[in-house]
Nucleic acid binder design. Structure first.
Length: 589
RNA sequence: GGUCCGGUAGCUCAGGGGAUAGAGCAACAGCCUUCUAAGCUGUGGGUCAUUGGUUCGAUUCCAAUCCGGAUCACCA
């Protein structure tokens, strides 16, 4: 309807005033609540060219549109705004159609395949709050893209090799006493993470010791036995040393098991996991390719570079002088491999905005190499999660652990639910399921409701709320509707009531009507927050409607059926929408 | 220093050329003999960082300045 208004307005102003505007130049808004109407056309832009008063133009456009669009019931002009009220028939038809057709909100296929990379953890420590945001955003963006008609391939990348991985390995080798996740009864990723911390602690002691012997900090760092040993270990790893590789396999195996548990708790999934240990050598072929195409050049010392100064960036190293690859080389190799594997039209990387520069380079370099996939490379750059005290720092122990956080959320959900006595007649498994859905719903919604691009502050002290603009509020709204439906029975389902909607019903209908537009917008902006905000509006509109109108006790049977259909449709949209955010919605709470 | 991102209510965040700038939390006042009160209704709270510019109109766009963050590695 908005689009129709835009198109018709464009042709009308063209005919009436000779203004050559396209439909995109026309502003159509929802009518502000203090005025009468559903949609509003802004006519200020025509005033100057038409050389008439806004009120006059408004009337002319209003008359013309009313003739062109039969769904328009009436219009009024306020200053430079024409507010259109749609016929009740329009809203009534919308409700009946949408309620009867479960695919009403499905969008047509775009015939595009989109790959989304998210998570991307290192295998030397457990997932933390930063990964949580990454995974929530990446997963939700994927689901939204699917809902918008795309085929989506979700992939993960494991940073499973390198000096930082060797640190936890070396610490385990030295201090591990052959303990295992099983023997210590902790998750494998946490066990390995503990040794990563242990390495750092022991290293600090060594450095301090050397400094008391008169070495400078720099010298001490260089000469600390642990630092020397860890470099040796990396060399052994790269040489394929059997013992080191076996240790690496074992410890990474523990980590993968631990991650798998965390992914299950989060409820995310992947079509394929890539490992840098498998792809880090592939980039070298691309380096060769770039050299032969004269896109890259070799410096006298042997390092391979690309000059990006013409594009406003710097000179970038692509291969070290000793012939080993750097970060960007691996990503080039991985991108190539992924394109061969899936041939996606787009490759979206869900990675924090501290790597904006890196992805600019990646895109530019692939463009210079004339890779088919270059244009489809897209960085879904999200802001970091900071604590009230500033950035999370693993060395200072201020990192918020993902597993701990989720456990805490579920525990809080349980406490609050028990305090309200909501689960008194629940079975134990149903109650546990509810605590999980509420705790995770609160956490996911809290993270996803804010614009991914912006950095956000997370305060672990003030635990996440369950009231107001939250996941549980929306879950509650859904459960409330289900409860009403249970009491009402099914007779409304095939009814076709014709009712003139009141204000709160109209408000709700309008929000539901806009849902597919929001999906499209969220997909094209890769922004789950747009969807989260809209579902909240829907739930809020429903609760106002619910407070003002009796559903099961409506004055007539027809009105009762009408309100039941409206409630049912609201529940359907809430469930669909929340699903795209990765949030489950309970039948009772 | 160069580049990029941000600054909106006490706090956490929406809005992004259009009408009197919105939510939630926190504070205060009402609403459960009626479908779930994790709800609803209301009150108070704003120099949209500052200064210029563009325009019929700027919180929104542009520039400069200030503040905060990121980034510019033969680290990943």
């Amino acid at each position: 309807m908005e689009q129709l208004l835009r198109e018709k307005t464009a042709t009308i102003v063209n005919k009436l005033y000779g203004i050559n505007f396209s439909d995109q130049d026309i502003t159509v808004n929802q009518t502000a609540k203090e005025f009468v109407g559903d949609f509003t056309v802004v006519i200020f832009p025509f005033v100057k060219i038409a050389r008439k008063k806004p009120e006059e133009i408004g009337k002319e456009i209003g008359d013309a549109l009313q003739k062109e669009i039969p769904e328009i019931d009436s219009y009024n002009v306020v200053k430079g705004f024409v507010n259109f009220k749609l016929k009740n028939e329009f809203w009534n038809n919308f409700l009946l159609k949408a309620a009867a057709d479960e695919n009403y909100f499905s969008l047509p296929s775009t015939h595009k395949k989109i790959m989304v990379e998210y998570a991307g953890p290192n295998t030397n420590k457990p997932l933390h709050l930063g990964h949580i945001r990454n995974i929530f955003i990446g997963y939700s963006a994927s689901e939204i893209l699917k809902a918008a008609g795309n085929e989506v391939v979700k992939v993960n990348i494991y940073n499973d090799r390198g000096i930082h991985i060797c640190k936890s390995m070396l610490a385990y080798q030295k201090f591990g006493n052959h303990e295992t996740p099983k023997s210590k009864a902790i998750k494998g990723d946490h066990l390995v993470g503990d040794y990563y911390v242990k390495f750092d602690q022991e290293l600090k002691i060594q450095i301090a010791g050397l400094m008391t012997q008169g070495q400078t900090e720099e010298e001490a760092k260089k000469n600390a036995p642990l630092n020397i040993e860890v470099k040796e270990m990396l060399l052994k790893w790269e040489a394929g040393d059997a013992e080191v590789r076996a240790l690496w396999e074992m410890m990474n195996g523990w980590v993968y098991d631990g991650f798998e548990e965390t992914y299950n708790l989060i409820g995310c999934d992947f079509n394929k996991h890539y490992k840098e240990s498998d792809t880090y050598l592939l980039g070298k072929n691309i380096v060769e390719e770039g050299l032969s195409k004269n896109v890259f050049y070799k410096r006298p010392d042997g390092a391979v570079c690309v000059d990006l100064t013409a594009d406003g960036l710097d000179e970038k190293i692509l291969m070290r002088s000793d012939g080993t690859s750097v970060y960007i080389t691996q990503d080039l190799g991985t991108a190539d491999l992924r394109y061969k594997d899936f041939e996606p039209d787009q490759m979206i990387y869900t990675v924090a905005n501290e790597q904006d520069y890196h992805f600019k380079v990646l895109k530019l370099v692939t463009q210079k190499l004339e890779k088919k996939y270059a244009a489809g490379i897209n960085h879904l750059s999200y802001g970091m999660v900071d604590l009230p005290t500033g950035r999370m720092k693993s060395r200072e122990g201020t990192v918020v652990d993902a597993d701990d956080l989720m456990e805490e959320m579920i525990r809080t959900a349980k406490e609050q639910t028990l305090a309200l006595g909501k689960t008194e007649n629940f079975s134990e498994s149903e109650a546990e399921k509810l605590y999980y859905e509420l705790g995770m719903g609160a956490l996911k919604f809290f993270i996803l409701k804010v614009d991914p691009r912006k950095r956000m502050i997370f305060n672990p002290e003030e635990s996440i709320d369950f009231h107001g603009f939250t996941g549980p509020f929306i879950q509650y709204t859904y459960a409330r509707i289900q409860s009403v439906k249970r009491k009402a029975g099914n007779s409304y389902i095939n009814s076709t009531p014709v009712i003139k909607a009141n204000d709160s019903e109209l408000q709700l209908l309008l929000q539901l009507y806009l849902y597919p537009n929001i999906i499209k917008e969220a997909a094209s902006n890769l922004d789950p927050a747009l969807l989260a905000n809209h579902i909240y509006f829907i739930a809020k509109s429903f609760n106002s409607f619910y407070a003002e109108n009796s559903i099961t006790q409506a004055e007539t049977e027809e009105l009762k059926n009408y309100r039941l259909l409206l409630s049912d449709l609201t529940a359907t949209v809430i469930k669909k929408g929340m699903k795209l955010l990765g949030i489950e919605v309970p039948e009772r709470m």
